[in-house]
């Protein structure tokens, strides 16, 4: 069971405080734990930090790792920048979408998986590469990528 977003915010406030500079950290905490940032979390953060709700949304919508839509427990971020694109990123994405029956930036019905693309993740020497829940996976092939994702909880 995911934790109550407000509880996460409360914990975050103890950790990071309520200053303006805590905002990205608070959001990161919620986003990492829940895979997304629900409205109640945004409102709780706004209230605690005295930053307006719109401004919190503004920050959320700026960063690509934050989401205000529910996402899967597991997030696959496939690099789509040049070194990976040249080494077969397209086929890997194709394979993943076929295998798990979702489009890019969609989430499986069971809430297990979301597939995203992202800009260069600094693993170009071992392209193509992806991050799965932050962990790097490199020198991918379509099969290898599907295996990794299949093995997720």
């Amino acid at each position: 069971m995911p934790r109550n977003p407000e509880e996460i915010v409360t914990e975050g406030i103890i950790e990071f405080g309520t200053g303006r500079e805590s905002l990205v950290q608070l959001l990161t905490k919620v986003n990492e734990e829940l895979s997304w940032i629900p409205t109640i979390a945004i409102e709780a953060i706004a209230k605690a930090t005295r930053i307006s709700v719109a401004e919190v949304y503004s920050v959320v919508s700026f960063y690509s790792f934050f989401s205000i839509e529910p996402r899967g427990r597991n997030i696959v971020r496939l690099c789509s920048t040049i070194s990976c694109a040249m080494t077969g990123q397209g086929e890997i994405l194709e394979a993943l979408m076929n295998e798990f029956g979702i489009e890019l930036f969609e989430t499986t019905d069971d809430g297990r998986l979301t597939i995203e693309t992202t800009s260069c993740i600094g693993l170009c020497d071992q392209a193509p590469a992806m991050l799965v829940n932050g962990e790097p996976h490199v020198k991918l092939t379509p099969e290898k990528a599907c295996d990794i994702v299949r093995g997720l909880e």
């Binding site: 945004i42 709700v53 719109a54 949304y57 503004s58």
Partner: peptide
């Protein structure tokens, strides 16, 4: 934000998708 001290609207998104808004809500429920 600065003249009225309210911050009802903010810049949303980045790059070409940028726009002004209140977040997920429309103005009427802000």
């Amino acid at each position: 934000r600065d003249i009225q001290g309210k911050g009802i609207i903010a810049v949303l998104n980045r790059g070409a998708d940028m726009r002004v808004g209140t977040g997920v809500k429309l103005l009427d429920i802000s």
